[in-house]
Amino acid sequence: MEAISFFMICLITLLFFCAYVAFAQWRNTRDAATPWYIGYLIAADLHYLRQFLIDIARDHGYPYLPDLPLRWDTPLTYLSLIAYILFLAKVLNFQAHAPRLFLIFRGFAIIYLVLLVLNIGLQIGLGFTSANQVYQISRILMFPLMLIAIVFLRRRAIHLYQKLILLGCLFLVGGMLSAILTEYTAWYEIIPDIIRAFPTPWGTFYFYHMKVGIFLDVICFSWALTLLQKHKMMAEAKTDPMIIQPNVARYVAVEPLVEFKKKEQEIFIQQVDDFLIKNYANEAVGVQDLAKHIYLSPSQTTRRIKEITGLTTEQYIRHYRLSKAYHLLKDPNKSITEVALDVGFKDVPHFSTCFKRQFGKSPSEMRKNAGKVKEDAG
């Protein structure tokens, strides 16, 4: 019994803590899914807190306040189920990706809302026993709904947060199955040690019960929600020039991330070009010299240039030299050999080969075409 009490304290604390964290996240994001998750956590926390206080009072002979005139554990369970269903529909965005599935989930939420009202009515009119019988039957309705969510996620779970939600649903389904099977003596006698009871020196510990399923489910869902909100904030930062700053009651205009990165790349390439303007004629200049000039390692320099231009550092330097040669060849007073030497090529045949590979014409062919253009112009 002591082991069970300790686990209940852990569960109640976890539910409260996760609700507090989710509320803090919601204050920054204002998304549609988090309020339903907070509702699920609060309803479940109140349900188990009530049960824990009653169990402690009974075990130790303490007085406790009864649920006069009604028992509120079942209505709280209905509230938690409604919030859970709507949270799944919102966080997985069924309305956009699976409209029919969204209607099914919303329909189940309405059914449980009706059952909540019916439960209160049955308690008032016929007593708790009749209301509880309806509740035990209604719990089974969650199975097809949870299985639908699991199948949907199994096919579409790409991001980590989606996989965590899938795992949380599986944990909860296992807990629900355990709770329902142990209501029936025949099933309980077949698999008591596998699903329900785990004896310890401190008493019988329920190894996999509904409480364990909820405990694991909440850990997965809270982690998933944190990842999802981080993902949304990063996506908004890339596209929205107006970003909400935490704890600031106004919008602050900031430069979009894409534009910032573009300008940063332009500045970097300008630094590279400034170095090449002064050194492209020196054949010995290479990656090491360029990297030293811009205060990066050779590997970092090559990676940045490759990311921006698609060329390696050697290819970019050669491309720059050949572009200079293209303009120098328009001067009829310079020979092809002089142009090659001016741009850092001592090997003229190699220069001609590289030039033709880049521009589709050899240096002599390009010069002839340039001469014809001059004659036509004259």
Score class of each variant (00 low, 15 high):
Pro349Glu: 06
Arg321Leu: 01
Lys306Glu: 12
Arg367Gly: 03
Leu311Arg: 11
Glu307Cys: 05
Arg321Ser: 03
Arg321Lys: 13
Leu290Gln: 06
Phe355Pro: 00
Arg318Phe: 00
Tyr316Cys: 08
Tyr326Gln: 14
Lys346Asn: 15
Lys330Phe: 06
His327Cys: 04
Met366Leu: 10
Ala340Ile: 00
Ser297Tyr: 06
Asn369Tyr: 10
Arg357Val: 01
Lys324Val: 09
Gly344Arg: 07
Lys292Cys: 07
Thr301Ile: 00
Asn369Thr: 04
Ala284Asn: 14
Glu314Ile: 11
Ala291Arg: 05
Glu375Thr: 14
Ala281Phe: 14
Ser362Met: 02
Thr337Met: 05
Leu296Lys: 12
Phe355Val: 04
Lys334Asp: 03
Ser364Tyr: 13
Ala291Ile: 07
Ser297Thr: 15
Leu322His: 05
Pro332Leu: 01
Arg367Phe: 03
Leu329Phe: 01
Lys361Asn: 09
Ile336His: 06
Ala284Met: 13
Ser364His: 11
Arg318Val: 04
Ala284Val: 07
Pro349Arg: 09
Ser335Met: 02
Glu365Phe: 01
Ala291Lys: 05
Thr353Arg: 14
Pro349Lys: 07
Lys324Ile: 09
Ala284Ile: 08
Ile336Ala: 04
His293Tyr: 15
Val373Leu: 13
Leu341Ala: 12
Lys330Tyr: 08
Val287Gly: 05
Glu375Arg: 14
Val285Met: 10
Asn333Lys: 12
Glu338Ser: 13
His293Lys: 15
Thr353Gly: 02
Phe351Cys: 04
Glu375Gln: 15
Ala340Val: 00
Ala291His: 09
Gly310Lys: 08
Lys372Trp: 13
Gly286Val: 08
Asp331Val: 11
Gln358Val: 09
Lys292Pro: 07
Thr309Arg: 11
Arg304Thr: 12
Val287Met: 11
Lys372Ser: 02
